[in-house]
Amino acid sequence: MRSEATPFHLPSGTAADGPYALDIGPEQAGWSHSSLRVVELPPGGAHMMDTGDSEWIVLPLSGGCAVTTGTGETFELAGRESVFSGVTDFAYVPRDDQLHLTSRTGGRFALTGARCGKRLPARYGPAADVPVELRGTGACSRQVNNFAAAGSFACDKLIAVEVLTPGGNWSSYPPHKHDECRPGEESQLEEIYYFEIAAAHGTPGLGYQRVTPSGHGRRTDVLAEVRSGDAVLIPDGWHGPSIAAPGHDMYYLNVMAGPGGTREWLICDHPDHAWIRATWPDQPVDPRLPLYTAPAGEAR
């Protein structure tokens, strides 16, 4: 699944398998917990899978769907036109269950997963309840949709968020890591970045992702030009920046999980670049953010 030249960068289509446009699991990634699948359904299409030893969140990337569990619970997801058009609702399906997707109009759906021990109840996540955070300022401004952040939605192991970066900005900056278990200071989390880049003037978008060795684990080292449908695996290392080319807004979905007994996102900034945070109070947040506005009557 991974080439020798770029073992952690998976260009669009290279990690496709069966019904999935993207299929990353512990076996393929060579780690223990985090998974991401992307399934594309035509109008009237359907997909079924066993959840096995993992918990899963169904997150519409485009289009809407119905999610039915093995016990017959059904959640209708309104979805969205695209990842750049708004926050979406989602559905959580526990381990040791079945997940059945149907879509009347078709669409693309991310299945974010993590191996876990506890079996939590299946639930619906309303779009209106997703906390939207504007992080950083100036050229480091970005938007984070914390739909399954550790403090936003209950899971056993899974942590997942969406990040939107206006064209020309840097996100995942300063570079940071979470590859050691240091109670109260740093979590050990495997991470997947899945990218979509907005086209402009008829031209497909691109961006760049950097990962540098931290001295722990595999010494992951990545400098990748990323395009829509690409993924980057981060088992360890300092990751960032994620750079959006001018004129092309960048979206990425982060999926994280790890062996820690507490579900938390604790990071350590790279000591050479942490100073950038001290400059943020002196700059305004990029006025292009948020990249979209919640519909009238919805509090996001």
Rank of each mutant, 00 (worst) to 15 (best):
S3P: 10
S3R: 11
T6P: 11
F8Y: 12
H9A: 06
A16L: 05
D17N: 14
G25L: 00
Q28G: 14
A29W: 00
W31K: 00
S34I: 12
R37K: 12
V39I: 09
P43M: 06
G45D: 04
G52A: 13
E55R: 05
I57K: 00
L59M: 12
L59P: 08
S62G: 11
S62A: 12
S62Q: 11
G63V: 01
G63Y: 02
G63S: 07
A66T: 08
T69S: 12
G70L: 04
E73H: 08
E76A: 12
F84H: 04
D96H: 13
Q98D: 12
H100V: 12
H100R: 14
L101V: 01
T102M: 10
T102E: 15
S103F: 06
R104C: 11
R104H: 07
R104A: 15
G106T: 03
G107E: 05
F109V: 03
F109P: 03
A114D: 06
K118N: 15
R119L: 14
R119E: 10
R123K: 13
Y124P: 02
Y124H: 00
G125M: 02
P126I: 02
D129R: 09
V130C: 09
A139S: 15
C140G: 15
S141W: 09
F147M: 02
F147L: 08
A150R: 10
A154E: 15
A160K: 01
E162R: 04
P166G: 07
G167H: 06
G167C: 08
N169H: 10
S171W: 02
D179I: 01
E180Y: 11
P183S: 06
S187V: 00
L189W: 02
E190L: 04
E191L: 01
E196K: 11
I197P: 05
A199I: 11
A200M: 10
A200N: 13
T203N: 15
G205N: 05
G207M: 02
G207E: 01
R210A: 12
S214K: 03
R218E: 13
R218V: 09
R219S: 15
A224T: 04
A224F: 07
R227M: 13
D230C: 03
L233Y: 00
G240Y: 08
G240I: 01
P241S: 10
S242G: 12
A244P: 09
G247N: 08
M250T: 10
M250K: 13
G258T: 05
G260W: 07
R263A: 08
E264Y: 07
E264T: 11
W265M: 14
W265I: 12
C268G: 13
P271K: 09
R277H: 13
A278N: 08
W280C: 07
P281K: 12
P287F: 09
R288V: 05
P295H: 07
E298N: 13
